[in-house]
């Protein structure tokens, strides 16, 4: 199935890129995100709890990014598996400057298997779009409020620091790549303070609609277990 959508975010593409690539921000803006963990070079896993209509449950998903063109586009490859079904999604995300700030467009091409595929296209896309909408609304709140919605000051500093320190961050990339896996959760925003290298920032790709889509679909799979 295909899922396309867009969101207007109040910030420059650079600011948007920075926010949606801040794992700490993502951990608190992705609907139902429990944990976010870096597992290797541009690879991450996360736990998300979803609950819309008949689609509910928690699941684990894995994501890999490619083709990063900061601050304009990247491609994300997401997979989620687990009885009674599985999903594989490829999501292209573009950022474009506008008068209001940035228009983010996403285009997801997902292969859905198992009974979850049986609930009807409009319902599946309807729920995915709804969750994507919730995600971007939360991201925009991060951009406009200047302070994270529900985060400790440390996290806020981390975000703003990231915005102003991107070049440095890019330079120190190799070192960070070797670092221990970092975990970000809603309940431990402070952890975000330790990161600002580009690989970690790249985890932000997880925040794309595609990831939300993944969350929706896999959550759906488990949800159907009830």
């Amino acid at each position: 199935m295909n899922l396309d959508g867009s969101a207007v975010l109040h910030g420059s593409p650079e600011q948007v890129w920075t926010v949606i690539t801040d794992p700490a921000v993502l951990a608190r803006t992705i609907p139902g995100c429990e944990t976010l963990q870096r597992t290797g070079e541009d690879e991450y896993r996360m736990d998300v709890a979803v609950g819309v209509g008949a689609i509910r449950g928690t699941y684990a998903g894995e994501v890999k990014l490619t083709d990063q063109q900061r601050p304009t586009s990247y491609v994300m490859h997401a997979t989620g598996a687990g009885a009674p079904g599985n999903v594989r999604a490829k999501v292209t995300i573009n950022l474009e400057p506008t008068d209001e700030g940035t228009t983010l467009t996403y285009s997801a091409d997902a292969v859905v298997g198992g009974p979850v595929a049986g609930v009807g296209q409009r319902m599946m896309t309807g729920v995915a779009k709804r969750m994507a909408g919730q995600f971007f609304a939360a991201v925009d709140k991060e951009l406009t409020s200047g302070a994270p919605v529900e985060a400790a000051p440390a996290a806020a500093r981390a975000s703003s620091a990231a915005v102003s320190a991107t070049d440095a961050a890019a330079a120190s990339a190799p070192a960070a790549a070797a670092a221990e896996p970092q975990v970000f959760t809603r309940r431990a925003p402070a952890a975000a303070a330790t990161t600002s290298d580009v690989q970690t920032l790249a985890v932000g790709a997880l925040g794309g609609a595609g990831l939300t889509l993944l969350g929706v679909l896999v959550g759906w799979l488990l949800g159907r277990r009830r």
Partner: peptide, 17 residues
């Protein structure tokens, strides 16, 4: 179908597609 998604107990929605 957006508004229907809030109905607890909804399982599936089918159209011609």
């Amino acid at each position: 179908v957006e508004a229907a998604l809030d109905v607890e107990g909804l399982v599936a929605i089918y159209t011609y597609e």
